[in-house]
């Protein structure tokens, strides 16, 4: 992270240390929102409806990783791969059996929204029933060794979060821009019916998108599990912030979403510097509200391509 280094060199003393620490915390918080926001953005722009179950998928990924690692005793890497794959399959299954059924009944967006809220409640309570409501953590040792980068303590988890964010962001852009599959996705996102007429397998595209985005949500859940620990409702706040990042950055715009998410993470952390902690979320929502009020299509979208929210 060059910016951290720069600030460290330019400024000295306690203030610099505090600043660097805030920067590191803000970037790692924002990176989680970015990962969720990219997943939400791709899914929403292709499928055109909001899926509340994504919050449950975040929790499911973390809990699967926890049970593979702590209960089944698999090595960490295997546990993570199994958890991510499993969550992806659950997401694709939901798409195939649940959302496709709703769409085939010509449901409106509101009907799908309510049904997905119901499905979220069912999934979240199933997780509560299976694993209990108590707070769990994925990390093996509770004290991970911090790296000292120019007087800021950066935990290895924070570094991992940042690197994963970069990977997801680049992966998303590469997938959407440079593969045939990504072309199908963009076609389906632009105009599903027209794409279907031109021979794009829209139903399969939806399935594939839900598999990939579910994997992304699982990754986000696992990272949160490492960083802050997990509970059955852990998917809630990150999904909301991810959606906010998606709205601010422009839905389906990967770079915009990531920059908005990083900005929100920084605002959240720097806000606490002067304001009491409880206004952390309030400040971010206030900024999102102002942005939505002034530019409903997001900060990084050209105003010529107006879309209805």
């Amino acid at each position: 992270m060059p910016s951290v280094l720069l600030t460290g060199e330019a400024l000295q003393g306690a203030l610099a240390q505090q600043l660097a620490q805030f920067l590191a915390n803000g970037i790692s918080a924002g990176s989680v929102y970015a990962i969720v926001g990219v997943g939400f953005g791709i899914s929403y722009s292709v499928c055109k409806y909001f899926q509340f179950t994504q919050a449950a998928l975040i929790a499911l990924g973390a809990y699967m990783a926890w049970s593979c690692f702590h209960l089944a005793g698999l090595p960490m890497i295997v546990a993570l791969v199994v958890a991510i794959g499993f969550t992806g399959c659950v997401g694709a299954g939901l798409q195939y059996f649940f959302y496709n059924t709703l769409v085939s009944r010509h449901s409106s967006r509101l009907v799908i929204l309510l049904a997905s809220l119901g499905a979220y409640i069912v999934l979240q309570n199933l997780i509560s029933l299976l694993f209990g409501d108590e707070f769990l953590t994925l990390a093996k040792r509770d004290a991970s060794v911090p790296l000292i980068v120019s007087s800021a303590r950066i935990t290895s988890v924070q570094l991992l979060i940042f690197v994963t964010n970069l990977l997801v962001c680049c992966g998303g852009i590469l997938l959407l821009k440079f593969t045939a599959y990504g072309r199908f996705c963009r076609a389906a996102a632009d105009n599903g019916e027209l794409a279907r007429e031109y021979g794009v397998p829209v139903t399969q595209v939806h399935l594939g998108v839900s598999f990939v985005t579910s994997c992304v949500f699982a990754v986000a859940g696992i990272l949160i599990g490492f960083d802050r620990g997990m509970g059955p409702t852990m998917g809630f706040d990150p999904l909301l912030m991810g959606v906010a990042a998606g709205i601010v950055g422009g839905i389906g715009n990967v770079l915009g979403t990531v920059s908005a998410a990083l900005l929100m993470g920084l605002v959240e952390v720097f806000g606490v510097w002067r304001l009491p902690t409880q206004w952390q979320h309030g400040l971010v929502f206030a900024i999102v509200a102002v942005v939505v009020f002034l530019r409903p299509n997001g900060l990084f979208v050209k105003s010529s391509s107006i879309r209805e929210l």
Partner: peptide, 23 residues
């Protein structure tokens, strides 16, 4: 606690069922 979870699952299933068949 189990009862409250089951209750929630009931609400959720009712929402799904109604949205599928009788919105």
């Amino acid at each position: 606690s189990t009862a409250s979870m089951l209750r929630q699952i009931m609400y959720g299933s009712a929402l799904i069922g109604l949205m599928l068949w009788r919105s």
